[in-house]
Every structure is written in C-alpha cells, then in structure tokens.
Design a protein around this nucleic acid. Structure first.
Length: 256
DNA sequence: CGCTTTGTGCGGTGAGAGAT
DNA sequence: ATCTCTCACCGCACAAAGCG
C-alpha cells in the first residue's frame, strides 16, 4: 500500500505533475476540462496534498509555535483558542509549548520550534510580577508576537490589555451613577494586573475629588471562591463601618 | 579500513520554454 | 493568447564512490 503522490495523480489524469500542482493551488490558467480531470484522479486515488513537501520546495512554513505560560489561566486559554481558530482558517498549524520556567525549559521549547521550522512564535505571557518579557523571548530571532494581560515595557509586536484604562473607565461609570464609595476586590497583592487596575481606579477617584483608601481594595487569589469570600467580607465590613441610616444600596459599589 | 566527498531520492514548486 | 510541460531546486538522510 504505497502512499499516493502527485506523480500518481498526474499519470492517472494524463498530465504533468506541475499541472496537477497548479490545479491544487488554483494557480495559473488551467482549462476547466483539465481541472475536472485532475480532480477526478485526486478523488479516485484518495490523494492528499503534502504540505510539508510544498513548504520544503517553497522554503516556507505553515507552522506557528505557540507558548502558553499558564495553563491554569482561563483567559489565556480563551486567547489561545481564538488564535488556533484564526490560524487554522489561514492554513497554519500550531505547535504548542508549555515551558515550566523562563530559562532552560523555555530555551528547549524555542529550540524545538526552530527544529520544526516554525514561521513564527506567539508568546502568551502569564500575569507575572514583571513588566518585561523573558530575555530568551526578547532575543528570539524568529518573528514574534507577545500577548500579555498587562502592559509591558517592551518594543516589538505586542498585544496587551490596558488594565489601567479599563479600571478607570469602570470607576468613572460608577461615579457617574452617583456611587461615592468604590472598592476593588481581587488579584494577588503582587499581581501586575491588580497594580495597574488600582492605578486606574486611583486616578479616576482623585480626578473626581475622592480619595483612595488601601482598605477598600482587598487582595485575594484568582479563584472564584476566594473572590466571593473576599466580596462578602468586604461588604460586611462596609456595612459595619457606616451608620445604619445611610442608604447603602445604590451608594456603594466595588470593582472586581 | 575509516573518513570525506559526491550522488540520489523524498514530494512537491516556480520560471520559463513549448505546443496549439 | 492559452494551456501545459521541462528542468532545477528545496534541506535532509542515506548510500555509493573516492582517497590516503
């Protein structure tokens, strides 16, 4: 059971291999009759276009190396899913790498990408405490796009989320609706996302003549339970703090 | 004999030539 | 002008040939 090649198709269709190649890629001017002929031969033989060989000849690659730093981060997973979907649409295949650290593991990961001849690398950063990419990524000679949930102080191709602006927008939204006691819940203390959002919150509050208090922004780990516990705790403390006569509902709000 | 150089095949593509 | 074909080549592995 020999593998079917473009030569077999050409023989069966009674044309040359280059004509088959042109039909496969829908290039050049090929008569409808020949196209139908070739396609019938392809169907009959069950031929499958060998993209690896095509890439070899054309010195191209349809492989993209995707590095996902944090598999437990649901946001990164969603970003990855979208990336894979879009790349597949454009005829690319994704190689997934999950280095355990930013040193030796990452180096091995990049090496295997190079060995596979990837066209480029997409780096999905984790919510690290550092606003910088790992040195190995920065020095990577392959075309690179870095995706981060927080702002990075880097040059190059970056896709980032502006947490500072987002928190500012959210805070302004609440202020415009009359809320005057605005808190922020979430993120571990050292989280860069948290720090950037607090900056946005603080500057929005200050702009509206309100003050930002440290105790209005309790930190907690990222999981839902921790967040809900922190929220309950926070709400209770708030109620305690104010006189019961104060209409709490509609006057207090917190970002999460 | 052991090392190095050269040739060939893998499955395709691209430029340019050839046939109608 | 259209359509199709010939030939060299991609990067690597493996085999055959060359050589001291």
């Amino acid at each position: 059971m020999k593998k079917v090649s473009i030569i077999d198709v050409a023989k069966l269709a009674g044309v040359s291999v280059s004509t088959v190649s042109l039909v496969l890629r829908q290039k050049g001017k090929i008569s409808d009759a020949t196209i139908a002929n070739v396609q019938a031969a392809i169907r009959q033989l069950g031929y499958v276009h060998n993209v690896a060989a095509a890439n070899l000849r054309a010195s191209t690659s349809n492989l993209i190396g995707l590095i996902l730093r944090d598999f437990s981060d649901s946001f990164s997973i969603k970003v990855m899913a979208s990336i894979v979907q879009e790349l597949e649409k454009q005829g690319y295949m994704v190689f997934l790498g999950q280095p355990q650290d930013e040193g030796e593991h990452l180096e091995r990961c990049l090496l295997s990408f190079k060995q596979q001849g990837v066209a480029g690398v997409i780096y999905l950063a984790s919510d690290a405490a550092s606003p910088h990419l790992p040195a190995l990524i920065r020095q990577c000679p392959l075309p690179l796009v870095a995706v981060s949930q927080s702002l990075l102080e880097e040059n190059g191709n970056l896709v980032m989320r502006d947490n500072r602006q987002a928190a500012g927008l959210a805070a302004r939204y609440l202020i415009e609706r009359g809320h005057r006691s605005i808190g922020y819940i979430g993120g571990r203390q050292e989280s860069l996302i948290r720090q950037q959002r607090l900056l946005g919150l603080r500057s929005a509050l200050v702009q509206h003549g309100m003050s930002y208090k440290e105790e209005s922004a309790p930190a907690c780990s990222d999981d839902t339970r921790a967040a809900s516990q922190a929220t309950r705790h926070f709400a209770r403390a708030k109620q305690h703090h104010h006189r019961p006569a104060l209409p709490l509902a509609g006057r207090h709000a917190w970002l999460h």
